[in-house]
Design a protein around this nucleic acid. Sequence first.
DNA 1: GAAAGTTGAAACACAAAACGTTACAACTTT
DNA 2: AAAGTTGTAACGTTTTGTGTTTCAACTTTC
Lengths: 145, 145
Amino acid sequence: MQITSKFTVAVHILTCIDIFGGQMRVTSDFLSGSTGVNAVIVRNVLGQLRAAGIVETRQGSGGAHLAKALDEITLYDIYKAVDCVDDEGLFHFHENPNADCPVGRNIHKAMDGRLAAAQAALENELKSTTLAQVVADTRRIIDEE
Amino acid sequence: MQITSKFTVAVHILTCIDIFGGQMRVTSDFLSGSTGVNAVIVRNVLGQLRAAGIVETRQGSGGAHLAKALDEITLYDIYKAVDCVDDEGLFHFHENPNADCPVGRNIHKAMDGRLAAAQAALENELKSTTLAQVVADTRRIIDEE
DNA sequence: GAAAGTTGAAACACAAAACGTTACAACTTT
DNA sequence: AAAGTTGTAACGTTTTGTGTTTCAACTTTC
């Protein structure tokens, strides 16, 4: 089980938009080249980021731009934007526990709060990290090459 | 994306073993009935829990038993036992970033530590919860019915 | 020691999800 | 008008999770 690569691809895309955006038009084709991901998938991810108010794109003209300051975009925003987890939550209960068994009909309730706390711990960590930090690290690593 | 239901099923199974183990033989067939999960799957999960030293089972005789005290089994132990995540980690990088692009060849390094921190936050929360707590909650909910 | 019930494990089947691919209409700029 | 780009739908492929069938090995009971 792994969280969809669309999440890390989205971070990659946003980092490219910031780093290359000043010098050139950052098209889905260019992003496909940098990420190694199919251009249509890139456009799908950009569409999700646009729906979340993170980037701006326009038909025809080409070139994506950030819609917010780097330090106003958290990894959690991106994680939510690309739908890493659905409404059911990160953990998954089996559908058919036996309602005639006292454990079967209550185990869900007994675990729910604790699993939600674990999921919240993950998400809080993502909320505390901004794209500004990731981009700064990326620039530093590039400069040190 | 969701963490495999084998995890919550394993917790369900262990809870049953504790609650019903005193009165009856808790076989894979019985556990299949309570969880709604196929008996072969139950035996697979029991096999993983046995490999992790959490339960004891024996061919022929039937009936699973806990190999440790309830408060010595954390949700993290179970999560690891049933292989919720592989060695690559919870997050997933795309395979083919472009090594000719400065972002492409460095983004992995720039994100790694932060993603590991997020995963660790989740796992630490699971480590802080024991099966004893889940079973106690389950018994309380049953008593209140 | 034979019968019945159980576990362990392999092999195959099926469904859902992730990701890739093709195709094309709508749009913008030159 | 032409060239390049985005948005989106439709379909294909691969992987993974889960279910199913089958059977050998083992234990207990009769």
